[in-house]
Structure formats: structure tokens, C-alpha cells
Design a protein around this nucleic acid. Structure first.
Lengths: 165, 165
DNA sequence: GGCTACTTGTTGAAGCTTCAAGTATATCAG
DNA sequence: CTGATATACTTGAAGCTTCAACAAGTAGCC
């Protein structure tokens, strides 16, 4: 295995900004949502995905995929949301292993009450500083990066991972 | 306070990719570094910053700023690194409140052993999928976003925050 | 039918981060 | 020089996430 190239100045600058984004954004979202509704961003995301789904419900596994959350984490988060009465879990009729999470009426109300402030924050911190063109660029660039992270995760998480063939 | 505009399709797509990046990257970095050296990405970052500093040492507050870490978190992380003998803390001669964290010889070795694999992962997942032009674009776009997050954090964290004047 | 292998989802402990409070030192205004 | 305020750092508890192990169900295969 050969020594990898070190980063050029331009690469390092870009990487440091990626890092800074990844360090700062989650905390910022969490703080806003916690103040507004006692919600974590993780749980807000679950509510938001459910509210856009048919029947406002979805299989846990699918919910995990769409939210980019581990199943374990999802399990804990949904359990907490169920405690609060914002989500229910019921067995899937078609698959005995499956559970279907569904938004309750009260869950809908929490989301309706919280969404405007959240959207405003997303606009203020992420979207508004960019022009429409730049937003399109960002989307393209991050699409490539996200794909490669997901590919890498599959590669390095697989039980039978080839050690860099 | 008026209803904020909802997101357009293009904005939503960009936002979802930002979210996905922010959900996936930290875990991915943590997993690689933990396997390679039992390090968290948070602690790797501290070691890396220290190793580039004069005397391989830095004030805690400055370290917190550069790593975009809360002081509390930094305190915990550095305490753990000190336990392992990779960092020392000594009082600042010029400011009685200050502590100076410094990388030990062993800390240097850990970093030297870990950095190549880490750089390889950063390349593979973030930099290599992009052309040099795209890396420059990314840097520009994220620079704007990061700035606005930091501005927002100051605004909403300040004790005397004006409630949207 | 009965194996074997895979998928779905949960659980509890361990680890990390955040939050609020506390200690100590510096700075500044009068 | 004194009191008020701000900065530097730590601490412990509470909360969230990850990891590994497990229970239960499905699917393909012979």
C-alpha cells in the first residue's frame, strides 16, 4: 500500500470547510428545534418523512434508509416519539417481521407547529446565502460526494469486504 | 412573523443532500479512525491541529475555535487524550486562566501512523469524485454556508439576542 | 418438510456530547 | 484599589448514538 498523496492547499481548504459544516450544522439544527419543540433533529426528520408518506406511515427499514439513520438509532428515536404520542408502531400485515410507524394527529400538529421555524432556519443558514445557480451546483457536488460515502460504507461495512483488491 | 416560503424542488434536493452528508460523514470518519487507531474523529482532529501548530501546542480556547468544538467537549476529549499519554496540559505562563495542550512524542507517532489512512479515506469519499474545478466550487459554496451558520449561532446563542429586530 | 442464510427490528451497555453550574483569573471603570 | 463584568476551563449528570448480541420471520433449496 503506497503512501497516499497529501492534500493540496485548495483541497485542504475545501476539506476544512466540509468538516466545519459537518461539525456545526447538526448542533445548530438541534438547538433551534429543541427550543422550538423539544425535538432533536433526528426525531424531527422522522416526523417530516412520515408526514410526506402515503397514509403518513412507513416501514421502519424504509424510514431508516430515507433518513440515513441506523436501524438501532431509529428504533430508539421512534420509541421515544411513541412515548410522547406522536407516532405509533403496528405490525406489518404483509411481513411478520415488519413494523409500520405512523404519525398520529398530535404528531401532525407538532410538525405543523415546528416546520415553519425550521424551514426559516434552513433558508437563513444554508439556502439564502446562495444564488439559484449555486444551489444547483451544490446539489450536483454533494450528490457525488454522498454517493461515494455510501459506496465506501457498503464496502467497509460488508462482512466479506475485499481488502482493497 | 410571516410564513416563510417553502422549498422549491431544486432547493429541497440540495438540502436533502446537505442533510445526508451531515448524517453520513461523521459516522464514516469515526468508524475508519476507530478501527485504525481507536480514535474518534473529534480526537483525531485535535491531534492533527496540534501537530501543525508551533511547538505542537496550543491554548485550549484557540484549539476549540479551530476545531469548531465547544470548550466543554474539548475539555473532555483532551482529558481522554491526556489519559492515553498523547497530549499534555500545562498552565499558560502569560495567562493564569489558560491551559496549553501539547502533543507528546507518542501522540506524534499515533498521528503519523493514522494520517495516511485517514487522508486516503478523505480522498476516496470526498475529494476524488470531484474535478479540481469542482473542488474550488465546493470550497466557495461551503464557505458561504459555514459563515452564515456561524453568524446564526452567534445571533441565537448570545445572551442578549435581539428577537429578530 | 426441513436446512441454511438473510432480513427486520429491538435491547442494554458503553461511549460521546451537551447543558448548566461552578471555580479561578483577567480586565476595566471609577 | 475595589467591585463588576467578562473570559478560560472543568465538572457531572442527562441525553443521544453506536455497537454487539439477540429474537423472530422470510426465502431459497434440496
Amino acid at each position: 500500500m503506497s503512501e497516499p498523496r497529501w492534500l493540496t492547499d485548495a483541497e485542504m481548504q475545501a476539506w476544512l470547510r466540509v468538516l466545519r459544516l459537518v461539525m456545526l450544522l447538526p448542533g445548530s439544527l438541534d438547538r433551534h428545534l429543541r427550543r422550538a419543540a423539544g425535538l432533536t433533529h433526528a426525531s424531527y426528520t422522522i416526523l417530516a418523512i412520515l408526514s410526506d408518506a402515503p397514509e403518513r406511515s412507513m416501514r421502519m427499514a424504509e424510514l431508516a434508509r430515507q433518513s440515513a439513520t441506523s436501524q438501532s438509532r431509529l428504533s430508539h428515536v421512534v420509541a421515544a416519539l411513541e412515548q410522547r404520542g406522536w407516532v405509533t408502531r403496528s405490525p406489518s400485515p404483509s411481513d411478520g417481521r415488519g413494523l409500520i410507524a405512523a404519525l398520529t394527529e398530535e404528531g401532525v400538529r407538532v410538525l405543523e407547529r415546528t416546520a415553519p421555524g425550521h424551514v426559516a432556519q434552513v433558508r437563513a443558514t444554508v439556502l439564502d446565502p446562495l444564488s439559484p445557480d449555486e444551489i444547483a451546483q451544490l446539489s450536483t457536488l454533494l450528490g457525488k460526494i454522498v454517493d461515494s460515502i455510501e459506496a465506501d460504507d457498503v464496502r467497509t461495512t460488508d462482512p466479506d469486504a475485499p481488502a482493497t483488491p
